[in-house]
């Protein structure tokens, strides 16, 4: 193990303990560790953007690229300069051009993808569950497939009904439609609660793996670095 590895291990050990110190409450050690992480991340992202984006995609084509590459590099450079005018209140109007371009492209890509990639396929999939002639891999039991489809259909409808707020305030004698929607709401709440519970279990699982990894690192550090240093 080189000296650099030992230094890195000591630094990691110290930062890990500083983050764990949050168990006793907010304290300067925890804040220092968080600020170090944020600063290092910001600096690293800046270097990545310069080395991985600006230099190879704009500077190099402008200097040593063909005429086509130079023309193509001028456009993002101009848009980038216009974006910098947002700093000045007087010139901020010019910055609206690249902002409009960014927002427009992002919205078009996101909406198009959501409609064609999620909405229509998922609706189609919900309908296709009841197509018992379609093979679904390992799930060959048609009865289970039908029950699964019914559960998914009920869950989808009642969850959507839960987000319907048109029933108005509680009334002593609700109409038939209001009673139906309230029943759907209650069933939808059950599905939403199950979903949130599942999500929480996933979050806890991910956090537990992170805890195990850090504690393993601490134990390994104590075994391989600290104990030999103390023994000598």
């Amino acid at each position: 193990m080189s000296n650099l590895d030992i230094f890195g291990a000591i630094l990691g050990f110290a930062l890990t303990l500083m983050v764990f110190s949050y168990l006793i409450g907010d304290n300067p050690l925890f804040r220092v560790a968080i600020h170090i992480f944020i600063g290092v991340t910001a600096g690293f992202v800046c270097i990545i953007v310069i080395n991985n984006v600006l230099l190879p995609r704009m500077i190099v084509p402008l200097i040593s690229g063909s005429m086509e590459e130079r023309l193509l590099a001028i456009i993002p450079m101009l848009l980038g300069w216009l974006l910098l005018t947002k700093i000045s209140p007087r010139l901020a109007t010019f910055g609206n051009i690249p902002v409009a371009f960014l927002v427009g492209v992002a919205a078009a890509v996101a909406i198009g993808g959501a409609v064609l990639g999620t909405l229509f396929p998922q609706i189609n999939a919900t309908i296709a569950i009841f197509d018992l002639t379609t093979s679904r891999g390992f799930d060959t039991n048609k009865g289970l497939q039908l029950v699964n489809g019914i559960i998914i259909l009920v869950g989808t409808v009642t969850t959507l009904a839960y987000f319907h707020f048109g029933t108005g305030p509680q009334q002593a004698n609700p109409t038939g439609l209001q009673s139906l929607l309230r029943g759907f709401n209650q069933v939808g709440q059950v599905f939403i609660a199950i979903t949130f519970g599942f999500l929480f279990a996933g979050v806890y699982s991910a956090a537990m793996v992170a805890l195990v990894e850090r504690l393993s690192f601490i134990v390994d550090f104590l075994k391989s670095v600290l104990l030999p240093l103390l023994s000598t």
Partner: peptide
């Protein structure tokens, strides 16, 4: 693991939009 409830419907779709995954 926290993404499984979100990703699974894409796997359960017919035709599949995700052809296999490992969660957590």
């Amino acid at each position: 693991a926290q993404l499984e409830p979100i990703i699974r419907p894409y796997y359960d779709a017919n035709p599949r939009q995700i052809h296999g995954f490992v969660a957590g």
